[in-house]
């Protein structure tokens, strides 16, 4: 599904990733853990094609094709989705309007019939219930006046509507109370199946109580220094990152 090869990337002349290798197969869930500044967000931003990042070496291959030159929207249409660490407030842009446009953009790309207002409403209402969100959400502007928890739930709601094949969860768990964390985890677990892949970025182990990854990687100073299974996360929780830094 996704293969990152020897990726070197930076922003404003400062190199952040120093040769990342990562392979995520269809249906797999990988977790990347690391402290602030280790390059976690840079990694998710370069996969989704955010402006301002410079890739000096390596490649990102998605479903067999290099996507380095692809626009963010083409990556999204091809099935890549990122749940933002800091979802953006967009004043005046109505949630329903935005989400309908996004869903239909994807349907059009897939050669499917665009949803009309009634069918879209049916879809969104079903997903709202799944995420335990109020229907009044539909009338509001994108993320405007949302609490931290609501913003993160909104990200998962969008994920459920857009049905990506590769979901990148960028610190989706940070800033969530335990109830919101459970709802978010439930959304992810329900969505997960053997076709869909996940890359979960976090610096806490606590999300891993609710989701069960196939692989865990530790990112330090822009390099993956250790990979393992869920036990690695537990080990990190006990020992911290320092023992890996010296390794």
């Amino acid at each position: 599904m996704l293969e990152i090869k020897n990726l070197h990337a930076g922003v404003k002349g400062k190199m952040i990733l120093h040769g990342v290798d990562l392979k995520i197969k269809q249906g797999e869930m990988h977790v990347i853990m690391g402290r602030n500044g280790s390059g976690k967000s840079t990694l998710s931003n370069v996969i989704t094609g955010r402006d301002g990042y410079e890739i000096t070496a390596g490649d990102i291959v998605y479903k067999g094709e290099s996507i380095l030159d692809w626009s963010p929207e083409n990556r999204a249409l091809a099935g890549i989705f990122m749940s933002f660490q800091y979802p953006v407030v967009i004043p005046g842009v109505n949630n329903t309007y935005f989400l309908k446009a996004a869903v239909n953009s994807k349907r059009k790309h897939n050669g499917e019939k665009e949803l009309d207002a009634a069918n879209f409403l049916k879809l969104i209402k079903e997903k709202l219930t799944e995420m335990d969100m109020e229907p009044e959400y539909l009338q509001r502007a994108v993320n405007e006046g949302f609490s931290g928890g609501e913003k993160k739930r909104n990200e998962i709601l969008q994920l459920l509507c857009l049905e990506p094949e590769l979901s990148i969860m960028d610190e989706t768990d940070s800033g969530l109370d335990i109830d919101a964390l459970k709802i978010v985890a439930k959304g992810i677990n329900k969505y997960r199946n053997e076709q869909r892949s996940f890359l979960v970025i976090t610096h806490y182990q606590r999300l891993l109580k609710y989701i069960h990854p196939d692989n865990v990687h530790v990112l330090i100073d822009g390099k993956i220094v250790r990979s393992g299974n869920k036990d690695l996360a537990i080990e990190l929780e006990e020992k911290g990152y320092r023992w890996l830094e010296s390794a």
């Binding site: 402006d51 929207e73 999204a76 979802p87 967009i90 446009a101």
Partner: peptide, 30 residues
Amino acid sequence: LDKDALFYLRSRGLDAITARSLMIRGFATE
């Protein structure tokens, strides 16, 4: 136009022109 918001919209599959239009409209609709 807020670049972060533009990227946010594009990352949901809206092309650059649609994303810009949506934001311009959003600025004015209030």
